[in-house]
Design a protein around this nucleic acid. Structure first.
Lengths: 194, 194
DNA sequence: GTTATAACCTACATGCCGTAGGTCGATAGG
DNA sequence: CCTATCGACCTACGGCATGTAGGTTATAAC
């Protein structure tokens, strides 16, 4: 059935590369069509809308991130695993800025459910097993780690650290140590949590 | 000279309200012109471009945030100040989602320098004085706090916490406690920081 | 070969940004 | 009071993006 071989796969890949090269805002149906060598209208034979095109970038990024996490976390535990988790995120954001931007998009419920997002969440939760927390505290801990990591990456990428003196990477190390330390000394007494 | 009373001020306010009501993506020159009762072309008598219009929203948000911080931080210190800093951010993000989105935009160097951003940075740094850190460590601490707060708010607003059981607000308390605890037990020995 | 399907096309409606150039009201100086 | 100026506002337009309608053609199945 195909005539020139344009597939959703190729469109999504072109969109992801365009995003990394020029920023997510430049990912348009027109630009992707140009890149693939097809008229904009033809793209709609494969994708319902421009929004779905961006969703494809997000979904790809989720899979890539989940894969890298699975690879780097295998065989690591505790603090090593925590640091690997964070490094994978930061490295991915720096080497694929457009895809990282796409990860900040909100997916619809159906798309989110079928995505690699839950796989990432499971990776994060697995790290917490070594810290000996209750199930609820594991959730809190995942949220703490996620907040610190994604917040740091967002601020660093936004240039917030560019005009103060210690290099951002120094702070990165300290932030991760602080999170690890918080998990090792997690408050068990309810009075400590007030 | 004015004929119907459109000013940069009114345009910026309309843009900010549109952002909070419909999201930052709906803030266009056309929409703001409609809201103010003027043709799109007339907006360009007051603002150079659509980008500058969005900058106005960002600048307004920075001022509002800096004002709220100054108000809530006065008279507080240590842990109280840290929690107030975080609460002001979270409350602002929840009550003004479009303005909060605008805060994630990157301003040009000239606009950034003249903004209320440095005022916010000074507020954050002032909190750290009570923790007895070196100047460099104060910077690291500001970055830790900023990462945790902005990361948590981003994930919460993005719905990342919607499908796990403990309420996000519970995690919020624990995250802030973890940051406070990290600052109180800040590593002074260089060996602890490896 | 004939036929169905789907990939691709042209053409177009709509909506945004931004520019060019004209109109008209408010104000200042004579 | 009268006029010149300035700038706020306008209409008209070009460019580019999204998305739809409807036609054409390559491929695959029979």
């Amino acid at each position: 059935m195909p005539r020139s071989g344009v597939t959703v796969e190729r469109l999504a890949l072109a969109a992801a590369e365009l995003a990394d090269a020029n920023g997510l805002a430049e990912v348009t149906v027109s630009a992707v069509a140009r890149l693939v060598g097809v008229r904009p209208a033809s793209v709609y034979s494969h994708l319902a809308s421009a929004d779905v095109l961006l969703d494809q970038v997000t979904l790809r990024a989720l899979v890539e991130l989940a894969d890298r996490l699975a690879e780097q976390l295998s065989g690591r535990s505790g603090r090593d695993a925590l640091i690997a988790f964070a490094e994978v995120h930061r490295e991915y954001a720096n080497s694929h800025p457009g895809r990282w931007q796409a990860l900040q998009r909100r997916l619809g419920p159906e798309a989110a459910a079928g995505s690699a997002g839950p796989r990432i969440a499971r990776s994060a939760r697995a790290i917490m097993r070594d810290y000996g927390l209750t199930p609820d505290d594991e959730t809190h801990a995942v949220r703490l780690l996620g907040s610190a990591v994604s917040g740091f990456i967002a601020l660093e990428g936004g240039g917030s650290f560019d005009h103060s003196t210690p290099p951002a990477s120094d702070s990165w190390v300290l932030v991760l140590n602080a999170v690890d330390s918080a998990l090792r000394n997690w408050p068990t007494d309810s009075a400590d949590r007030a």
